[in-house]
Design a protein around this nucleic acid. Structure first.
Lengths: 245, 245
DNA sequence: CGTGAGCTTGACTTGTTTCAACCAACGTGG
DNA sequence: CCACGTTGGTTGAAACAAGTCAAGCTCACG
């Protein structure tokens, strides 16, 4: 394990001899994301590190390896030819870059690093071989895929039927839940490396308006943001605003 | 084949002894959707018919069979507790009700018939068995799944970053393309059973505004709608409006 | 020390919603 | 047969949420 590989398909990748934090993280993720741990022991992988704000992969690239985020945040996004951008999903530690890469090499949307990102890649051929050997694995993989689809559906409801306040409240709570599941939140406090333009592109709003809504949230004591961290001060009220059931 | 089954999970299903149009359609779909034809010959299935405007399945139901639409249009949608609705996808002949049902029984969003819908269901256990026997099948299935995800991503861009005109133009062109792929469009003419409220729920707009945009489209000679059919009069201009590359 | 990225705030504009009234087509039951 | 409610569509006026434009601020960085 930890073998180095050329990975020619991933253009802007800088390789590192070993990713110090990854093993610790992998074990931390064992509970929530069994598949990751399983792959780690059964499959060889290569490790990569990429600085913040850089593209990890481009739409329509082909990729013979399946990448999983180990550390840091990334965003998968599509861009219209006239520059409008929509972020489809934020990728957190433990997420596949995109679940469909398990079966198909073509990348559907570009992914860029929000923070510095550490990730591992597995050879698709080896993964498929393992899959046929151990058919129960397919359920763990399909789980990841179904989650990805569920998040896409949630996004559609947010964008199609929610006000600006609701969209932003939902985004924050969604990230908070996902981090909590992975034991990456400390109580009501979580890392929050997103710039306002990330939030704007994820919620279909303008940067200016996102700024106004966030100020309003802060002023009314719902959240606190400082030093790239976010504290949920009034969870109940934020949930009420988000109209989550 | 054509066996009848109780299918207790599908509550409002009315069964029919045989679905006269299905065999013809299945062969028509052979080219475009290999998997459907393959299943038809290798797997037993049951056939169902459901009238327009009725629910086919409800969110959180569990379903041990995998349904594929044979004839008619359906819509998968989620509803917020306060009544706001978002249609996630229109299902056309040849589409899985939802691709994730291949692996998991729990239904993620409710599906309702737009027109009368004929569909077939396959037992998940039989499908899984066949899958392990013929591993190449997995690629055909993943294809369907990837398409479903691609449509979800397209929807997000429409809802998040497009104007009302663009959203509606894109919806029309998207349906037109999918029907054309299945040889279900006749030139620029296609069935168009959608009510304005379907379009509204699919594009995240209000019924009133959808009405205004459609009138405008008609007035400026882009489309013609009559008798539940739609003709694309000025394809070039409609594409320009939709900002499709 | 200048430059650019990110954030805040205010004034004004616009696309879409809301509200309302009205019409046509259709099925249903008396 | 007509009376009736329901569903679907059209149109116009007013209200509002979010966008646009603009200026000024901080901070990190080469």
């Amino acid at each position: 394990m930890g073998l180095k590989s050329a990975d020619a398909q991933l253009q802007p990748v800088e390789e590192v001899a070993s990713c110090a934090v990854c093993p610790a993280l992998a074990s931390k993720l064992c509970g929530g994301l069994g598949h990751l741990a399983t792959f780690g022991t059964l499959l060889r992988h290569s490790e990569h590190k990429i600085p913040a704000r850089r593209l990890i992969c481009r739409k329509h690239d082909r990729l013979d390896r399946v990448p999983i985020v180990c550390e840091g945040w990334a965003a998968s996004a599509v861009t219209l030819f006239d520059g409008r951008r929509q972020i489809l999903s934020f990728l957190l530690p433990g997420d596949f870059l995109s679940a469909h890469l398990i079966f198909e090499p073509e990348i559907q949307c570009s992914v860029e690093a929000v923070t510095e990102v550490h990730y591992r890649t597995f050879a698709r051929t080896e993964l498929m071989a393992l899959l046929l050997e151990q058919p129960t694995l397919i359920h763990k993989l399909s789980r990841a895929w179904i989650d990805e689809k569920a998040r896409a559906d949630q996004l559609a409801i947010n964008l199609g039927r929610c006000s600006a306040d609701e969209r932003i409240a939902r985004l924050i709570l969604n990230l908070f839940d996902r981090l909590t599941q992975r034991s990456l939140a400390r109580g009501q406090l979580m890392d929050f490396p997103l710039r306002q333009h990330h939030i704007a592109d994820a919620t279909g709003l303008t940067v200016v308006h996102v700024g106004k809504v966030l100020s309003e949230f802060r002023r009314s004591g719902l959240i606190k943001i400082s030093d790239r961290s976010l504290t949920i001060v009034d969870l109940k009220e934020l949930q009420r605003l988000a109209k989550l059931q």
